[in-house]
């Protein structure tokens, strides 16, 4: 299964819905998408990972890269994920402390911390 990407705007947030497998082959497409959004001035991103079947460290690297980019513009990158097997990867790499992880897009979009 390949990677699917779609974006939509909710208020001042841009929601990126990701589906399929994020690995060493597909991660560059996600990176391009995030870079393009930031270059176009979208600094508050919500990455919806509910349809992601597989995520590896290359994908984590891309998300960390995205976070670095939005932070350079005082932006934010929030994740939406309820899947235990995906959450586990964030936990074992300690990245749960780096990314705000929400249970729904609504929750992520309305979060301000």
């Amino acid at each position: 299964m390949d990677l699917s990407l779609s974006t939509r705007t909710v208020g001042d947030r841009t929601v990126v819905e990701v589906g399929g497998e994020i690995d060493v082959y597909t991660a560059p497409k996600l990176r391009e998408q995030l870079v393009e959004l930031v270059n176009d001035g979208s600094y508050h991103l919500v990455v919806d990972m509910e349809r992601v079947d597989f995520l590896d460290s290359t994908g984590l690297g891309v998300l960390v890269g995205g976070l670095k980019r939005v932070r350079a513009h005082e932006g934010s990158l929030r994740l939406v994920c309820n899947q235990e097997r995906i959450l586990k990867i964030f936990r074992i790499t300690g990245l749960t402390k780096v990314f705000p992880i929400h249970t729904s897009v609504d929750d992520a979009v309305s979060a301000t911390d």
């Binding site: 590896d56 460290s57 690297g61």
Partner: peptide, 18 residues
């Protein structure tokens, strides 16, 4: 440089964590 930085260590971290 860029996002690829640290991917290798992260890969090993994932393996040893799993």
């Amino acid at each position: 440089s860029g996002d690829a930085e640290g991917d290798d260590e992260m890969g090993l971290a994932v393996i040893s964590g799993l």
